[in-house]
Design a protein around this nucleic acid. Structure first.
Length: 274
DNA sequence: ACCCAGGAAATTC
DNA sequence: GAATTTCATGGG
């Protein structure tokens, strides 16, 4: 008899849209429609049956953790309605994948995975992240691997990461780990301080610019006002939202951003030149 | 062979 | 300072 957590009456969640929209790189879809993944050193299978969300192999003591991870305390239906009024194309994007939620991932994991993401593609990012976990992460009872601690990574040199095949990003990962482990960069401080201050804190790390900082803040520290501009978003802003700036998207800009990012990536024809 | 990928650092102009 | 090149690696 397997243990599980159940959350009832869960709205505005689609697991495929949320777990495979490019914010997290560690969830794998099963043939039965569930997803296997690891977060906060817990290996689970998640499954959605109507509006019932099941977290299989999770302890009751972690109810609050998973509630937080899937951001179940936020009314995405209401937010979607609110931001859809900003621009009709944003309304289209929100309607395209209304089951996207912004996860509350481990801050250090978000930092590292988005360092890895630079000048890279999502498929390859997933491979590098998986190899990083296998190389340095704690092995969990079911054989899965946790995301490594900063301290573990901080003790190594860039060359030690050669098995990851992450190329020039190796030294960025080591620098990030060392600064986090040494307390030069305080991730927890970035939850609550002024946005620009949080950005600057993260940008002390070699290999962290504005975009990686914004992604870390959005996906790891739940700063949902963040509006990361990657190549897709720059295309989308130029073509779909001419004249608008990130500020125009309001306090839930990060959610709007993810709707737009996913919508753009799934509909590349929007940007074909005539 | 060439180009691109959820960028940022290094170099050049 | 702004614009361009380089940085590893893998897939199309």
């Amino acid at each position: 008899m397997k243990k599980f957590l159940k959350f009832e009456n869960v709205r505005d969640l689609d697991l495929a849209q949320t777990l495979d929209c490019g914010q997290s790189f560690r969830w794998v879809e099963r043939s039965d429609g569930g997803f296997d993944g690891v977060a906060f050193k817990k290996s689970v299978t998640v499954r959605l049956d109507g509006t019932d969300l099941y977290i299989e192999n999770a302890d009751e003591a972690d109810r609050e953790l998973w509630h937080s991870y899937f951001d179940l305390g936020l009314d995405y239906g209401k937010i979607r309605e609110e931001i859809s009024a900003i621009h009709p194309v944003l309304a289209d994007a929100a309607r395209y994948a209304p089951g996207i939620r912004i996860l509350r991932q481990e801050p250090f994991e978000a930092l590292c995975t988005f360092i890895i993401s630079q000048n890279n593609n999502i498929k390859r990012i997933k491979g590098i992240v998986q190899r990083l976990c296998e190389l340095l992460g704690e092995r969990l009872p079911d054989g899965a691997f946790a995301f490594p601690e900063a301290e573990k990574l901080a003790a190594l040199n860039p060359d030690d990461l050669a098995p990851l095949r992450a190329g020039f990003r190796n030294r960025y990962l080591i620098d990030a780990a060392r600064k986090v482990a040494d307390g030069d960069v305080d991730l927890e401080k970035c939850r609550a301080c002024a946005y620009d201050e949080a950005r600057n804190e993260l940008m002390q790390i070699t290999g962290v610019g504005v975009k990686v900082a914004d992604c870390t803040l959005l996906f790891g520290l739940h700063r949902i006002e963040a509006f990361p501009l990657d190549v897709w978003m720059k295309r989308a802003m130029a073509k779909l939202f001419p004249g608008m700036t990130p500020d125009d998207f309001g306090q839930y800009a990060g959610i709007a951003q993810q709707y737009i990012f996913h919508y753009s990536r799934m509909n590349p024809g929007l940007f074909d030149e005539r």
